[in-house]
Structures are given as structure tokens and as C-alpha cells.
């Protein structure tokens, strides 16, 4: 459609060297350095997959370990060569489930409040507080779980019911940690819903609650689902809270008031001591790490896919 400007045709001959694109060594060098910086993260991923895979392979090669027993065994006792990962997996899922039963309802309610109800002034005070909550190091939450929540639970349910190290206290505090994450991601999703939808609903006579729950919330569902999945992934990978407040050795139990050890907690405890290279303990933390990596990676990819696939695009 548009004609390209042609110097010669318009009667001004181009000076040969002046406007021609010269190769500039400096520019190319800088671009290569920047490309390396961009590509570097690929090395990180390759490093994770290679190192975890290599050591995990060594772990499964040892005669004491059988893949089937690893996946289905209910006892993790390395000193008598029992490597069943189920006790670690169940406690990981129990603590995460407790955390999510706190974080999902509270996080979503907070998101709806901040996005649909709060005045600008209230929002500006409440949101930073949630952000502070998200910025506190997890070891501090661990301390809080052990020194405050566990005694609280023990005084409510009885000291013989609740053990000093228990999954409930770790899970509850983990829920508080994840609450701001779910709230802030969901709030972004709710905010992205165009005002026209709300106005149309009001025009039909809907109340504020009906607009929020029946119009805005469904429209933002993909973003909310993504937030929840990221929250779950965070809960599964969370380490210090469970290491401080839950961890008491692998324990195959479904009772939240008993102590147990999650995958992350086990890795921390094993590597806290002096771990000698190429021992079966050393290799086992890589096998557990690999499993953890794949679980969280799958969840993160699902979350990204949901956002991409089901996002309602307005205008």
C-alpha cells in the first residue's frame, strides 16, 4: 500500500557509506552478551533436571531400592533399607490440604472484598498489610507455628490429642502464608473483568453480592483457578514451616494432630547433618527432589495453560 521511500527515484542519490547499515562489532558483542544472559536460565533448568535425574538414577540403581516399593511403600526408614515414599507424600498432601482449606476461602473472600467492595482508601491500607504478610520469611512463620499455634491447638484439643510436632499447626500457618498469594492473584483477575459487565448486571436489578458472585466471579474464574493452583504448588514446595513445626520423622498417618515429615522437611533434615556424597541418603534426597520438582512443575504448567486457554477476552 505505501511506497517505500526511494532516495534515487526522488532525485537525491544516496551517499554510499553514509546511510548504509554498517556492521558494528560493539553492538553485536553486546547483543551476544545479552543473549547469553537471557539463555542462562535454560542452563538452570537443564542443571536441575540433569543433576536431580542423575543422582535419582543412582538411587534407583542401588539394589536395596525398587521403583515399585518406592512408589507404594508405606515406610521410609533408610537405616533398614525401606524406601517407601508414601509417608512423605501423604503428609505433604495433608499439610497442603489444611493450608488450602484456610487459604482458598479466606483468600477469595479477601479478593472479592478488595476488588468489589473496598473503597480506594481502605484498599490502599489493607493491600500493603497483605503484602507484608507475604513478605515475611517462612522461617518466621515456622517459629510462629511452633511457639504460638501449636500451644493454642494443644490447649483447645488437649495435650494428649495434639502432639508437639503436628501437621495441623504447620498446615494452618502455611494457609496464612499462602492467603495473600491467592488473594492478590485472584484480585488481579477480578479487576480485569470490565466494568461494563458489572453495569449491565446492575441495570438488570442485581444486588452488589449478585454482581460480585454471579457475574464478576465466573468471568474471572480462569485467573482464580490459576491462583489456587499456584497456591497448591507453593504449599507443596514450602519447607521451613513444616521443618520447624511438623517434622518428627517419617510417619504414615492421616491424623493431622500427629507429627510427620513432608518431602521438603525430610530433605532439610537429611541435608542438615553431614551428608557424605554418593551415600544412599545423599542420592535419596535427589530422588525426592526430582519428584517434588515434577509435581510443582506440572501444577505450574497447568495453571499457565488455564490462564491461556480459558481466559475470557473482553474487547
Amino acid at each position: 500500500m505505501t511506497k517505500k521511500y526511494n532516495g534515487e527515484a526522488s532525485g537525491y542519490p544516496l551517499r554510499e557509506e553514509g546511510l548504509r547499515k554498517r556492521p558494528r562489532a560493539g553492538e553485536i558483542l553486546i547483543q551476544s552478551i545479552l543473549f547469553f544472559a537471557g539463555f542462562f536460565s535454560i542452563f538452570t533448568t537443564l542443571g536441575i533436571v540433569y543433576e536431580l535425574g542423575k543422582e535419582a538414577l543412582l538411587f534407583f540403581r542401588t539394589p536395596e531400592v525398587k521403583l515399585w516399593d518406592f512408589l507404594t511403600g508405606t515406610a521410609w526408614q533408610p537405616h533398614i533399607n525401606q524406601f517407601g515414599i508414601l509417608p512423605l507424600v501423604t503428609s505433604t498432601f495433608i499439610t497442603s490440604a489444611i493450608a488450602m482449606t484456610i487459604a482458598i476461602p479466606l483468600g477469595l473472600a479477601a479478593a472479592v472484598y478488595l476488588s468489589e467492595y473496598a473503597t480506594e482508601k481502605v484498599r490502599k491500607t489493607l493491600k500493603p498489610i497483605l503484602e507484608i504478610l507475604a513478605g515475611i520469611p517462612t522461617i518466621v512463620y515456622g517459629y510462629f507455628a511452633l511457639m504460638f499455634v501449636t500451644p493454642l491447638l494443644r490447649s483447645i484439643f488437649g495435650r494428649d490429642v495434639v502432639e508437639i510436632y503436628n501437621m495441623a499447626s504447620g498446615g494452618l500457618v502455611m494457609g496464612i502464608l499462602i492467603l495473600p498469594l491467592v488473594a492478590s492473584m485472584s484480585e488481579d483477575a477480578l479487576n480485569a473483568v470490565p466494568l461494563a459487565l458489572r453495569e449491565a448486571a446492575y441495570g438488570l436489578g442485581a444486588t452488589k453480592l449478585e454482581v460480585a458472585l454471579k457475574v464478576v466471579f465466573p468471568a474471572a474464574l480462569s485467573g482464580i483457578a490459576a491462583a489456587i493452583i499456584v497456591g497448591v504448588s507453593r504449599a507443596i514446595g514450602e519447607t521451613m514451616i513444616v521443618a520447624v513445626a511438623v517434622g518428627a520423622g517419617p510417619n504414615f498417618t492421616f491424623n493431622p494432630f500427629r507429627g510427620a515429615e513432608t518431602m521438603t522437611g525430610h530433605i532439610v533434615r537429611m541435608s542438615g547433618g553431614d551428608l557424605s556424597y554418593d551415600s544412599i541418603d545423599y542420592n535419596s534426597i535427589f530422588a525426592i527432589g526430582l519428584m517434588l520438582f515434577f509435581i510443582t512443575l506440572t501444577l505450574n504448567i497447568i495453571s499457565q495453560r488455564i490462564v491461556q486457554r480459558f481466559r475470557e477476552v473482553y474487547e
Binding site: G38, V230, S233, T239, G289, F293, T296, L299
Partner: peptide, 25 residues
């Protein structure tokens, strides 16, 4: 696109995995 996706995924990897990577490398 691969680099971008990869960076997003790395941001979601639990910190303890980085610890294991650091130990190995």
C-alpha cells in the same frame, strides 16, 4: 518463547530444589 516459558516456570520451582542444585553443582 521457550526462554520466556522457562523463566516463568523457574519462578515457581520450590526454593529447596535450588538448594539441591547448589549442593550438586
Amino acid at each position: 518463547r521457550l526462554i520466556r516459558t522457562n523463566i516463568n516456570n523457574l519462578a515457581g520451582v520450590p526454593s529447596i530444589i535450588y538448594g539441591i542444585l547448589g549442593l550438586a553443582i
